[in-house]
């Protein structure tokens, strides 16, 4: 009994339970759900969505928001495709440059937040518009079709059975983030600043540098997600990233992130991504109106926030 209550206090236990239940229920209702093809589609969605969620999660960790996650991802995506088509760059340098663009967009967000003292919500609302505007200026709202065969092959290839290669960068990013937030001082600084930036400053942590680093990581992850989408769609769509915002918040919140900052869980956020992917997929499988997906996603966020609040009260009681 006590073990269960201890488990229920961890961030990952609830989402894991929900994941297992969802797989069991939907799997028993629909034979197609656990088919290799369907699993591959699920994993492809997870590969991209996890990066989007992490891009937001790292900003939630410092107690801020990044509304420009989708705009950065979109800009990196069309830069990647555009550099290959227009400049004829090989895939790898193009991808690296696109990642640098994402990183710089994020760093710019962080620097602006830091030097103006204006809330990240407002700053990233503005840069969202700027990055999206640059995107549309470059593409004139037309997709880049000239994605090289190598990239297309990477987007479609599988490592083993239904496991796509696209999952590899995501797994690497997950492990790196997990290690950083657990073990590396920079990760601890990010959580410390999110928990109490005043106290962090008094402890000799450079709050400014930490904020900029977190935004840089966010931009980098958003760009990585954008590149993976190009590989998956096999074209550089200017609209990539437009629908990332809700998704980016849903998974971290389902994973128990404290929106005020200072506490996020990589594992639980990843599980949050899986839950969202499964539910979305299930709605498709049962041919339910796709607009309902939005409604369900919103309801899911509300439920998760409510649960987090209850849990926070429980932990507070437990400490007395």
């Amino acid at each position: 009994m006590q073990q269960i209550s201890r488990l229920s206090r961890t961030d990952w236990f609830g989402p894991l339970l929900a994941t297992v239940l969802a797989i069991a229920i939907i799997g028993s209702l629909s034979k197609n759900f656990l088919s290799p093809y369907n699993i591959q589609i699920l994993l492809l969605a997870i590969a991209v969505n996890a990066l989007i969620a992490f891009a937001q999660m790292i900003i939630i960790a410092i107690g801020q928001m990044n509304l420009s996650v989708g705009a950065i991802g979109g800009l990196a995506a069309i830069s990647f495709a555009g550099m290959m088509e227009v400049w004829g760059l090989p895939a790898l340098p193009a991808a690296l440059l696109a990642l640098v663009i994402g990183l710089l967009c994020g760093v710019l967000n962080g620097v602006l937040v830091r030097i103006t003292g204006i809330s990240a919500f407002v700053i990233t609302l503005a840069t969202l518009s700027i990055y999206k505007g640059i995107n549309l200026g470059i593409t004139e709202a037309q997709p880049f079709y000239g994605v090289p065969a190598a990239v297309k092959a990477f987007g479609a290839a599988t490592i083993l059975g239904p496991i796509p290669w696209l999952l590899a960068p995501t797994i690497a990013a997950t492990v790196a983030l997990w290690y950083m937030l657990r073990r590396l001082p920079v990760g601890r600084f990010i959580l410390a600043v999110g928990s109490n930036d005043h106290a962090a400053g008094l402890s000799g942590i450079s709050v400014g540098a930490t904020v900029v680093i977190a935004h840089g990581i966010s931009g980098f992850l958003a760009a990585l997600a954008g590149i993976l989408v190009v590989a998956r769609l096999q074209i550089g769509q200017p609209s990539i990233g437009d629908d990332w915002l809700i998704l980016s918040f849903a998974a971290p919140v389902i994973g128990g992130a404290v929106l005020a900052g200072g506490h996020v869980s990589v594992t639980a956020t990843a599980l949050g991504v899986v839950i969202v992917a499964i539910i979305t997929q299930a709605l498709v499988l049962f041919s339910i109106d796709p607009f309902l997906v939005q409604v369900v996603l919103g309801a899911l966020i509300l439920a998760a926030v409510g649960l987090n609040k209850l849990r926070a009260r429980d932990t507070a009681k437990g400490s007395l």
Binding site: L184, P185, V186, F189, L191, G204, I205, I213, H263
Partner: peptide, 20 residues
């Protein structure tokens, strides 16, 4: 920092000198 361990709270100043 409430979610950090006692030990980490005590030594955060010393950790503060490096990022990686």
């Amino acid at each position: 920092f409430p979610r950090f361990s006692v030990a980490e709270n005590i030594f955060l100043e010393q950790i503060g000198s490096s990022y990686l």
